[in-house]
Design a protein around this nucleic acid. Structure first.
Length: 927
RNA sequence: GCCCUUGUAGCCCAACGGAAGAGGCACCGCGCUCAGAACGCGGCCAGUGCAGGUUCGAAUCCUGCCAAGGGCACCA
């Protein structure tokens, strides 16, 4: 073991039983082995291989699924892991059956990329990384049930990912019933004639292929030829959620192109309403709820039809009440009606405009907010007043939202106002602006004007009136529009779950039967995705699996005798495995089912009326707000609808931990220097003799400011590291890492150790003396406070209360502190610093681990004071103090306050206007 | 541009609408030491981003502004 760098020469001066990093290291290793050998953190299930005695009171705590990166951990990563561990330990000590474990989300691009660089198989690199990761987190003393470790790349795991995919594939959304149902039930409805086929023929008259084609239109997973996000630089398509606001891929930051490709989609839009509405039932941060609502983007409005000759332009608007103010219309450049309605003399101009628009990237469109457009020569008829209004083509209208066409109301919409002023189009206000309004478009509340039969109505009333009118006259209808799109579910990668789908000679997708799962990844020569020039939009994805000819071409008996089929060569996106892993944690070794219903109900089921069920506490970063958390909720709801699970939501309570950031330093050349070697002098920072500039940001290799948990454990011990990390601030606040502050946590543990153990002899130095009143008060106050703090994830204040109590002991008991106090303190310390607590607990004579308690409870007697000191305020300023019995009535306190010498002088015989007595706090006299 | 979050000692952070300080780091003094501190004791340090308002009383509630961080962004 390397010598502690901070005490280079004094090693022999250190008492042999001092709680040093070296001793902490030995203690930690010993207890980690002990826990593992005895399965201390094994949580029993009601049924199945992990069956055991289950207390009714349970707790399921989960960390967001880590990806086992090759770079290893920095001190920011375990923040959440330790947070869940403290919570789990606290509840375990208080008698609950606590499920806490950690597995790995191990498919993904980095392993593939690393494999390409090193020539190693992604499985090899991934499994190596997992071992490294496990070694790193083991050192932190996390109380995981190791039996429940899972990994998405394990065929025994992805077999069930594929199984769930098939469940979704074999379902359709019954909008009338508001839930998913098996596709077989739909087929039965067609067969019985309860439901008409698209062309009206009887179900039996259709060929099998035609029947498949009809059903495929309903499935919750379907193949689509719609435009998708193609990323040549990655060689794969990605989901909308994986495209950043500036039109680049979240991973790799490559340009994204819209391209028509045949891809798998999941019909998440069918669940849009439930995904929004059920947010109200979740204990989640408002921020995340807001982001999901935003992403789903539900807006209420109307579809309105505007005739153009014999054609009809349908628009979506959230402001049907402003229909009388529609002075022109706009089609998106890609709108199919553009070709149809453009008049001969405008054809050239329109074609030119569309050509230019097509070549603009999304970024260009966004950066240039100057309105552009061109007249089509056509006019549409406003259904409310029969007026003819011109139809334009402009790229400020997007094909991807609503109907790709709008009615323009410049009086109430700033974008339309801008366009109208530029093209000299009329502007009619249809909402009376508030007095003094001197802006352009008015978007506020007000009565309708210039709107015929709507005049005088407020916006909401006008909306419902006009919608009723539109529906009555067949010009439109009220509707709801969503921003959410279906989920693009295929990727052209090697390192992911293969689809359990084959194609027959008609290219119809056919689901493989459950008995053929898992469909395992084949070995291939070259597992790299074929990537292209990132800017080259005219490229095609080429999945690595398509090159595994002997895997793709298969002969199977799918009920029609042995036939040749072609496998789907795509793989599932990274998110697939994390959509359901909480269910597998519950039943990790079940070979018959993805999760046994009894176990699911016990750990995840609803606990009261209206409770959606789910994990009791889910901690992770906010970056998954709309990706993982939306997808996961979607899968959960499908499984719920199909009767496979009892919980409607996967994660009942969500908590976002903050990010640990760090200072970084750049020299004159702008090059980052090793942050650990920078020293501060007189408010300036120096790297050697060179002055450097301080920056602040994420921890990372490129900023040269990484601090690892390994080095913290080495230098201070895991318990000190845990203690420090939890006491830096509240869990949800981002804060800067400061290695120099860690020593505070270490000093605390040393003092606590010293209060119980003789540093010279190693003997326990507690006494059997009865603690004095003040000590009992301090103890029970700490107990009460610590309970509060642990259950509310306020570990920083819990830690402070322990320090406070320990400081009291240090000051008052130089010859050893009373045993009862020492014991309670060790128990309270255990969730934060489990190793040293176990060690002290056993030194105090225990033979059982502290993992399952006991945990002290506060005695009310010591929480109430006999006497209370009241500050007396006169007009808000403290002028004196009185001490009265705790049970004194308000009148007694008031009388005592007025009698106080300085106060009486100020009141000087007059009558105060008001005397406020706040029981237990203070008295305020208003003169 | 819109939405959300956060502004308290040199730094990280506490404080049911009720005396601004729980804890840690840094700093200073004294003690113990040949010496040192990862020891003991004690201390220094802010009036809560700014301006208003509500209230007997505001760090806390409300309004506006400023700053930092995050999300969304021509979504009709």
């Amino acid at each position: 073991m390397s010598p502690d760098p901070q005490t280079p020469s004094a090693a022999d001066a250190v008492p042999s039983h001092r709680y040093t990093a070296e001793l902490a290291g030995r203690i930690e290793k010993r207890w980690q082995d002990h826990w593992e050998e005895r399965g201390t953190y094994h949580a029993p299930n009601p049924v199945g291989p992990l069956k055991g005695e289950v207390p009714a009171d349970k707790l399921f705590v989960q960390d967001m699924f880590p990806y086992p990166s090759g770079a290893g951990l920095h001190v920011g990563h375990p923040l959440g892991f330790i947070g869940t561990d403290v919570f789990a330990r606290y509840h375990r000590m208080n008698g609950r059956n606590v499920l806490h474990t950690m597995g790995f989300d191990a498919f993904g691009l980095p392993a593939e990329q690393y494999a390409v660089q090193t020539g190693q198989h992604p499985r090899k690199t991934t499994e190596d990384n997992i071992q490294t990761y496990l070694r790193q987190i083991r050192r932190l003393g996390l109380g995981h049930d190791e039996r429940r470790r899972i990994s998405t790349i394990d065929p025994n795991y992805y077999r069930w990912t594929q199984w769930i995919f098939l469940q979704i594939f074999n379902s359709w959304y019954d909008a009338d019933a508001g839930r998913a149902r098996p596709i077989a039930e739909l087929e039965a409805e067609f067969a019985l004639g309860k439901r008409n086929t698209p062309d009206g023929r009887g179900w039996c008259e259709l060929t099998r292929a035609e029947q498949y084609a009809v059903l495929n239109e309903y499935r919750l997973v379907y193949l689509s030829d719609a435009p998708v996000n193609w990323v040549p630089g990655l060689g794969t398509v990605v989901a909308n959620e994986e495209v950043t606001a500036d039109g680049r891929s979240e991973r790799g930051n490559f340009p994204v192109f819209r391209k028509n490709l045949r891809q798998w989609m999941m019909r998440i839009t069918a669940y849009a309403d439930r995904l929004i509405d059920d947010l109200d039932r979740l204990d989640w941060p408002d921020k995340v709820k807001a982001m999901q609502r935003n992403w789903i983007g539900r807006s209420h409005g109307a579809r309105v039809s505007f005739p153009v000759g014999e054609h009809v332009i349908e628009v979506f608007t959230t402001r049907p009440d402003t229909l009388f103010g529609a002075t022109y219309m706009v089609l998106a450049p890609e709108h199919p009606l553009v070709d149809v309605i453009t008049t001969a003399e405008h054809v050239d101009a329109v074609a030119e405009y569309r050509r230019v628009a097509a070549n603009k990237s999304d970024l260009d469109r966004q950066e240039n907010k100057q309105k552009t457009g061109v007249f089509t020569g056509a006019h549409a008829v406003n259904p409310v007043d029969g007026k003819e209004i011109p139809v334009y083509v402009a790229d400020y209208v997007l094909m991807g939202y609503g109907t790709g066409a709008i009615m323009a109301v410049p009086g109430q919409d700033q974008r339309d106002w801008d366009f109208a002023t530029k093209f000299d189009l009329p502007i009619i206000r249809t909402v009376q602006p508030t007095e003094g309004f001197d802006g352009e478009a008015f978007t506020g509340e007000g009565p309708a004007i210039n709107s015929g039969f709507l005049d005088g109505l407020e916006i909401d009333e006008a909306k419902s009136t006009i919608i009723a009118w539109l529906e009555e006259h067949g010009h439109g209808r009220g509707t709801i529009q969503y921003k959410l799109r279906d989920w693009l579910f295929s990727r052209q990668r090697y390192w992911g779950e293969p689809f359990p789908i084959v194609y027959d000679e008609d290219s119809q997708p056919i689901a493989l039967p459950e008995s053929m799962l898992p469909v395992e990844l084949p070995e291939v020569e070259d597992y790299s995705p074929r990537t292209f020039d990132p800017m080259d939009a005219d490229t095609e994805p080429s999945p690595p699996l398509s090159r595994a000819a002997e895997w793709v071409e298969v002969e199977l008996d799918l009920g029609e005798g042995k036939k040749k089929y072609r496998r789907d060569a795509n793989t599932m996106p990274n998110w697939a495995g994390s959509c359901w892993y909480q269910l597998r944690y519950v039943d990790p070794t079940d070979t018959e089912r993805f999760c046994e219903p009894e176990n699911e109900q016990y750990w995840l089921g609803p606990r009261s009326d209206g409770d959606p069920g789910g994990v009791d506490l889910y901690i992770g970063g906010v970056e998954h707000a709309v990706l993982h958390l939306l997808y996961s909720r979607f899968w959960q709801k499908v499984l719920f609808d199909l009767g496979h699970v009892s919980a409607e939501e996967p994660y009942r309570r969500l908590f976002n931990q903050g990010m640990i950031q760090a200072y970084a330093y750049v020299d004159e050349r702008g090059v980052y220097v090793d942050a650990s070697k920078v020293v501060e002098r007189d408010g300036k920072y120096f790297f050697g003799d060179q002055e450097v500039k301080q920056e602040y940001g994420k921890m990372g290799k490129s900023l040269r400011n990484v601090v690892t948990p390994d080095e913290m454990c080495e230098t201070y011990g895991a318990d000190t590291f845990r203690m420090y990390e939890m006491s830096m601030g509240p869990m949800d606040v981002s804060r800067p890492w400061a290695t120099k502050d860690v020593v505070g946590a270490q000093r605390f543990l040393q003092r606590l150790w010293r209060n119980i153990v003789d540093e010279e002899t190693g003997e326990v130095r507690v006494t059997d003396a009865e603690p004095d009143e003040a000590t009992l008060r301090a103890l029970h106050k700490a107990i009460a406070g610590v309970h509060e703090d642990y259950s509310n994830l306020r570990y920083n204040t819990a830690g402070a209360k322990l320090i406070e109590l320990n400081n009291h002991l240090t000051k008052n008991f130089t010859e050893g502190c009373p045993r009862v106090v020492a014991e309670a303190m060790v128990q309270m310390l255990a969730p934060l610093c489990p190793h040293v607590a176990e060690e002290l607990w056993s030194k105090l004579g225990a033979t059982e681990s502290l993992a399952h308690g006991p945990f002290p409870t506060a005695d009310e007697r010591y929480l109430v004071e006999d006497t209370v000191e009241y500050p007396i305020q006169v007009n808000g300023k403290v002028r004196g103090r009185i001490t009265v019995a705790a049970g004194a009535s308000q009148d007694e306190v008031k009388a005592a306050a007025l009698a106080e010498e300085k106060v009486a002088a100020l009141v000087a015989g007059g009558t105060p206007r008001k005397v406020i007595v706040v029981p237990g706090r203070l008295v305020n006299i208003v003169l």
